[in-house]
Design a protein around this nucleic acid. Sequence first.
DNA 1: TATTGTTATACTCTATAACTATA
DNA 2: TATAGTTATAGAGTATAACAATA
Lengths: 164, 164
Amino acid sequence: MATDAADLTPTTAPNAVTGVSDRLWSSVLAQEIPFLLARSRAVTSSEANRRLAEVDLKVRTYSVLSLACSGMKPSQRELCDFLDLDPSQVVALVDELQNRGAVLREADPKDRRSRLIVGTPAGRRLLRRATALTDKATQHTLNPLDSQEQEVLRDLLTRVCFQS
Amino acid sequence: MATDAADLTPTTAPNAVTGVSDRLWSSVLAQEIPFLLARSRAVTSSEANRRLAEVDLKVRTYSVLSLACSGMKPSQRELCDFLDLDPSQVVALVDELQNRGAVLREADPKDRRSRLIVGTPAGRRLLRRATALTDKATQHTLNPLDSQEQEVLRDLLTRVCFQS
DNA sequence: TATTGTTATACTCTATAACTATA
DNA sequence: TATAGTTATAGAGTATAACAATA
């Protein structure tokens, strides 16, 4: 399935579904939930990436920034586990945000190996701008669903993600 | 967000959520639908890839094979549009399946530029085995939802994907 | 002039292994 | 002996451009 790569998908046709190949939506593949999840994810993340370009962020850096500014002081290891990323990737993402002055690596008083990632005031300002952009992206891609349906979707997905 | 890469995630902890970083599930990021979509997609596609390895397929090749065997005779261009892939990627995927004798490129009587992708008998046999595997994967990852909830999820995702 | 499929190339993302400093 | 973070490197995935054949 497609990924973040399709950042340049035009807003007017975010899923590139319009046109000659609509007929394939009647295939059995199109009824399979894993396929629909992959497609929905591609649509939402490419739209979000497209908008986040305005503040020079992507969904991955946005996610790290959001957690850094949450007040929860996650360690890099926690970011790895929660975002399902390799340690080396988290190093790169945190480096990038730190170079921009958006986050800091704090010492962990309980474990000198560990680094706690926290947002700076500038990072929180950046996050506010970014959140406004991702909100708009979400509003756009989830437009077919009313707010109650969005709540249902959120609940169902949370339970799929957060299983034992 | 994470991707197919985590194919080796153990079955007993498909989302790697268990453990020390559960606390981050109370963050605002974890409430955002785009994040949940990305996470759900990572869980389902890595589980599917893990199982499809038994027949030496991945979700991408499985998708092409499924459409090829649908009887709908999609052109490569249609596969590009529908799967949101670059033409060059579809060439590679079809090449791989053709080398395995699973699909054929047929001439399009209406357009000599176009190649129609159709499954061979061997391809249909392969698809049957693959579908049994992906069904098991889906059953596993969607286990938290009952069948009615799965129907609701399918409907909501379809509407997100299939907007204007 | 535009489109389908193809090839070649570069770039991004991801996985793996090795290393350090701590535990 | 195991873990957190780091670095380096290779691989997979993806985007871009150019081309031939056809429309």
